[in-house]
Design a protein around this nucleic acid. Structure first.
Length: 573
RNA sequence: GCGCCUGUAGCCUAAUGGACAAGGCAUCUGACUUCGGAUCAGAAGAUUACAGGUUCGACUCCUGUCAGGCGCGCCA
């Protein structure tokens, strides 16, 4: 299966090549794109202007010649030239209807399986052990998970890996804090909260108390050299943290294929540094071992500290090495906040010097802030993720109770959960990840307008149309009626349906789930117009069945699309 | 100081170098004795931070300025 955009682009390129044989290169730029406005048809090609410049010819004449040379195409209803030389394509009505029919039957709604046979590793979420997840973790988790689902949908073999921060120097401080300050009762009730509390307390003390600090360092060394007591403590921190993270991942419907913390790669660190030394890629500088990079703009990358310890760059290099040898991926994708851009540029540069051929991609997103400034533990304005999700569900529940007071409470809660969590996810997925985000409750948990509940609502209404139809016509086989696109809005819907595959591809290739979210909103919006203005159950036979079938395909796309974003689609809302 | 990123109606956000800059919130008008009103139809709201440049064509690319964010060898 190929997308319409792809098919039309190939066809158009062929027409251009026959028209302008004197041009020998640059054919890759010939492409057909969705029109900017419906008045220009369905798809457009802007290439005439580009070649006109090159050949010093009139772009409209080129466009006319191209149309003459174009091979006949079943899908085509109309080819027109407009403005300075745009070639506008209008698709054939019957052909559209048959493609909608096909998309409705296809397992992937017509999306090509471009990932078949390829492996991709997705590294996202990655919270630190012994610290509760806060609102800053939501973006990596939600965006990473959407990319995860998108890749799987395209046929990739995906290995999602939660690369926990479980091996830093903070564990010396942590162990000291735990031994001296931990409250067994609090530890029982809210383990990770308590771990964070004792960590902060121990950290504060280490800043004033030299003895404390050096004891912490010793505890760290003991841990890293395998001291059984410290090892057991550390193990406990990890387990407690994982248990609590697990609750959140369950609420967010996020699962990982691997949960390997930094500690997993500990044994490989020395080897990585040795390789760098052997290959002359790292050398001693101010007592540390440093890899210098060719790019002037990148600072050198420290791979071994003066105290002999390794740092996160070393770990990431070892991780890459390990992942490649174990999984042989075609790419590795990291989803983190913007602050790590330099770090990954460094690591990728060193990895390539070491001969890494795997495509390495850092997908970064803007930090979340408050209107009054940054989140910080010290100011105590950090919002815990658990609380954020609770608030989202509570707000949604209030709306459900208002609009469906007769509904059983358990049901109300289910819907509130789907809508609340959906809203939270949609907030992060519907905008360009790289923009700066200023957090407000009102914005993050909006339930109207361009939001998850709007899409869920559209879906639920379709589900109810289908139910109603089955009640009224239990014996009719819908499939025996053809899809017909009579009303303009039906045609709009058909075109929207057929754009799903190319949208999924673009969202994945640009690592922007927002591209898909945008599309789904437009689709739901078109559907709402259709729903509100065109009768279907009440339409005459034939038209009625065609419209119900169209609804079914829209429902399928909405469901699939929202699923790719990790957003539930309840049948009632 | 250097580097990376961001600047689009009152607010929040769209727009693979293409046609008149697209939506949502808030505001104002309309639409339920008819398939679900968390909806729909419509109105109003913009010198795309500023100044240059490249281009047939710039929110988009280049240069400079201003404002904000983030980062700048031994924390991850």
């Amino acid at each position: 299966m190929t997308t319409i955009e792809q098919m039309l682009s190939d066809w158009m390129r062929d027409a251009f090549q026959r028209t302008l044989p004197e041009i020998t290169e640059g054919w890759g730029t010939v492409a057909v794109v969705v029109t900017t406005s419906a008045e220009f048809g369905d798809y457009q090609c802007n290439q005439s202007m580009g070649f006109a410049k090159l050949l010093k010819r009139n772009p409209r004449q080129i466009a006319e010649a191209v149309i003459k040379h174009a091979a006949p195409l079943e899908a085509m209803a109309k080819l027109e030239i407009a403005g300075p030389g745009f070639i506008n394509i209008t698709l054939n009505q019957e052909w559209l209807a048959s493609r909608v029919d096909e998309a409705g039957r296809d397992l992937h709604c017509g999306t090509p399986q471009i990932g078949a046979g390829k492996t991709v590793i997705l590294d996202y979420s990655s919270p630190n052990v012994a610290k509760p997840m806060h609102i800053g973790h939501i973006r990596s988790t939600v965006i990473g998970n959407a990319l995860d689902r998108l890749h799987r949908f395209l046929g990739y073999r995906v290995i999602s890996d939660n690369h926990l921060g479980d091996w830093g120097t903070q564990f010396g401080i942590m162990i000291m804090g735990y031994r001296h300050y931990a409250d067994p009762v609090a530890l029982e009730a809210e383990p990770v909260e308590e771990l964070e509390r004792v960590y902060v307390k121990s950290y504060e003390r280490s800043k004033q108390d030299e003895t404390w600090l050096s004891q912490a360092r010793q505890e760290l060394v003991k841990l890293q050299t395998g001291d059984p007591d410290n090892r057991r403590l550390w193990q406990q921190f990890v387990e407690l943290s994982l248990k609590e993270f697990g609750h959140i991942y369950k609420r967010l419907d996020v699962t990982f294929d691997l949960v390997r913390g930094e500690s997993y790669y500990n044994d490989r660190l020395a080897g990585v540094v040795q390789t760098l030394l052997d290959q002359g890629l790292a050398r001693e500088s101010d007592g540390a071992l440093v890899a210098f990079l060719d790019d002037e703009k990148l600072p050198p990358c420290i791979v071994k500290k003066t105290d002999g310890g390794f740092n996160y760059a070393t770990t990431d290099l070892a991780t890459i090495q390990s992942r490649i040898s174990e999984f042989n991926p075609s790419k590795i994708v990291y989803v983190t906040d913007e602050r790590q851009q330099n770090h990954f540029r460094q690591v990728f540069a060193v990895a390539r010097k070491l001969g890494c051929k795997t495509h390495l991609e850092h997908v970064w997103f803007g930090l979340m802030r408050l209107p009054e400034g940054t989140f910080s533990t010290r100011q105590g304005n950090v919002i815990k993720l658990e609380k954020y999700l609770d608030e989202a569900e509570a707000r949604a529940l209030a709306v459900v109770k208002e609009s469906s007071p007769e509904m059983p409470e358990a049901r109300q809660k289910d819907i509130a959960r789907a809508a609340g969590i959906g809203a939270v996810k949609y907030t992060d997925l519907s905008q360009n990840p790289q923009s700066l985000v200023t957090f407000t409750w009102e914005k993050a948990l909006a339930l109207d307008g361009n939001s998850a509940p709007y899409l869920q609502y559209a879906y639920a209404r379709i589900a109810s149309v289908q139910d109603k139809y089955r009640d009224l016509y239990p014996k009719t086989d819908l499939e025996t009626y053809p899809i017909r696109l009579g009303e303009p809005i039906e045609r709009v819907l058909a075109i929207m349906i057929l754009r799903f595959p190319e949208t999924v591809l673009r969202a994945t290739e640009s690592y922007k789930p927002s591209v898909l979210a945008d599309y789904l909103y437009e689709l739901a919006s078109a559907y709402s117009t259709f729903y509100q203005n065109v009768p279907f159950i009440k339409a005459p036979e034939g038209v009625r069945e065609s419209r119900v079938r169209l609804c079914t395909v829209v429902a399928k796309i909405l469901r699939q699309g929202l699923n790719l974003l990790g957003i539930e689609t309840p049948d009632r809302i």
